[in-house]
Amino acid sequence: MKVSIDKNFEIAQPVSKVWEYLLDPYKVAECVPGVKLTEKISETEYKGDVGLKLGPVNASFNGVITYAKVDEVAREIHLVGKGVDKKGKGSVEMALEMKLQESGNVTMVNTTMNVTVIGVMAQFGSRLISDVSDHIFKQFVENFQTLLAGKEIDDQDKQIHGGAVAGTVVKSITSKLTSGVKNIFSKKDKKEENENE
């Protein structure tokens, strides 16, 4: 199943610094909850471990992060993270497209995140996947801001945690205008959704 999240946010840092941090896979990985890079395969590909813990639920993945597109002129960056479940239950792909824009001392970040989940997690986790994706993304943004501000990300924020989730209780008020979580679950529904668009 696929979840697509569009989000725009501001970072109170100059665009050059944000860009520099985004080009550093280790910095990016530090901000994504549960991710740890283990090996550099090439200039654009890195291996890592991904652990997901949600209450009693545990999953661990062999991950590969790829810089699929780096366009310095347009300040556009595409990052793809692929994780294959260590027990053969499926895979998760997270494609992150970010476009930076300077506006004064602030950097505007336009982001689209496409999450594709295949296997057992899609079969049983469908009621949670879009919320969890949303929260991982939110936590990533918070961590990224922390890092850019020169602060340490505390250990708790390196895992998915309840605080991030509880924070979205107000999702409907704060992010409704900029985020559209779409869930495509059947041929028929899809057709209808397309018609509505």
Binding site: M1, K2, T116, I118, G119, A122, Q123, I184, F185, K190
Partner: peptide, 9 residues
Amino acid sequence: IYDDEGNIL
């Protein structure tokens, strides 16, 4: 119900 990725949901 199947999705485009081939998952049975």
